[in-house]
Structure formats: C-alpha cells, structure tokens
Design a protein around this nucleic acid. Structure first.
Lengths: 111, 111
DNA sequence: AAAATACTTAAGTTTTAACTTGACAATTAT
DNA sequence: ATAATTGTCAAGTTAAAACTTAAGTATTTT
C-alpha cells in the first residue's frame, strides 16, 4: 500500500486506454479483488494485472493484499488531478472568451 | 469547420499523449495558426498536423482555414465530456463511501 | 499432504501510435 | 512571373504498448 502523488502524464496515459477506463468504471462501484475485476473482460488475468499496475503507478488506484487476495479501489486523488488539469485549460479558455467579450462591448460603447 | 460530437474514447485517447496536451495548453491561451503552434516544439510540422487531426476528430479542437493559414482553437465541449466522465466516476465512488459511513454509523448506534 | 485458488513474473509476439522524410498544392509577397 | 510561405499527404521507420503463454509463488481449502 504505497501511495504516490499523481503525475499528470501517468494519469492521462492511464486513462487513455479504454480497457483501463472500463476497469475504473467497475472500481467506481466499490473495491474488488483482481480476479473478480477480470471476470467480465475477455482478456487474460495477466493482462488485467498489467493494467492495474499502470493504474496504480499513476495514482488512480490503490490496492492491498490480504492473504492471497489483492483488493483494489479507486484513489480519488488521481482522478482529481486529471479533473483539475481539464478545468484549468477550460477556465483559461473561457477567461479569454470573456476578455474578447469585454473588448467587443467596449467597441460597441465607443461608437 | 465540421464539428463532431465528442466520443469519450477518442477524447481520452487524444489527451493521453503529452505532446497533444502541450498543444491544448498552448491553445488554451487563444487561437493560433498551425505553424505558430508548431514553433515551440522540436518535432516536424507534419507531426503537429497529425496531432491536430487526432484532436479535431476527438472534438477537442476545431479549426478553420482562411487563405493558406489554418487557425485552431479549443472546443470546450470536448473538454467537458472528459471532465464529466471523471466527475461521474468520482461521485459514484464518493457516494459509496458515504453509504459505508452510514453503515458504520448504524453499527455504532446499535451497540 | 494434496489440490485448488489467487495472483505474480518474465519472455515473446502482435498491434498501435508517433515521428520523419520527401514530394506536392495553394496562397501570398516581391 | 518567381519566390516564399503555409499547410497537406503518403510512405516508411522506429518505438511503445497491449496482450498471451507458460511457469512459479503464496495461501487456503479439503
């Protein structure tokens, strides 16, 4: 159970794969073991484990092994990091649109 | 200028590449031409154009060609789609945490 | 103690994606 | 008219990522 601070490059790379997003969707309903996580998908368990490693290194998922079973769950911190990046770009863009609006309004006044 | 409704698979795939995210960052400051967009990066213009195609097909960027110059800008709709997906997973997860809290509270009352 | 479960790891294959090169088309400037 | 600018397109190459197979480890169950 070694948490990592989320690296935005790793987070977006991890979310870029549809299978990993499907895994995140499943995990969003609650913690699950690796084998139960793999059940619905038609790829090997080994492949799922590899995806989980990517998700964990990115900070999107944390897991804990008790006995022989590893239970995985979402780490909301990773998701927030991605959400924040998107929000930043969007707000920057929208601020610009507002400035443009102000500029047009000024022009409108000065005629 | 042909808009597309954003496909979440394409959007996340597009954002998965660090160079494309760098392009998005640059575009967040305002619309730019293809060549000015390529300037700061040390890849060929052709490569940048290919990234732009990916971004455009995903619905993150729109562009318009006037004369010989193509001007690109962010389409906030694409970004919202990604933000929404993340928010959905996170809220689902947090709802579950709340339910877990309720459950523990009940237990606490009944002793 | 033996068998079954639940992963883990390493190696190799296949597929996908990024990037370059080089030729070309359209527009604008001289 | 010629040259310079701005972008487009099609191959081909390289590198990265996804996936499988097969063998191995640790933990339960019977």
């Amino acid at each position: 159970m070694h948490k990592k601070k989320p690296d935005i490059d790793l987070v977006f790379h991890a979310l870029g794969d549809p299978m990993r997003r499907a895994i995140m969707e499943k995990l969003s309903h609650g913690p699950v073991s690796v084998s139960r996580l793999a059940e619905p998908f038609d790829i090997t368990l080994a492949a799922v484990v590899q995806h989980l490693q990517v998700l964990e290194e990115s900070g999107l998922v944390v897991s804990e092994k008790i006995g022989r079973v590893r239970t995985c769950r979402i780490d909301p911190v990773g998701l927030s990091a991605a959400e924040q990046w998107i929000r930043d770009r969007r707000s920057m863009w929208e601020r610009r649109l507002d400035q443009l609006g102000d500029l047009l309004a000024e022009k409108d006044e000065s005629r």
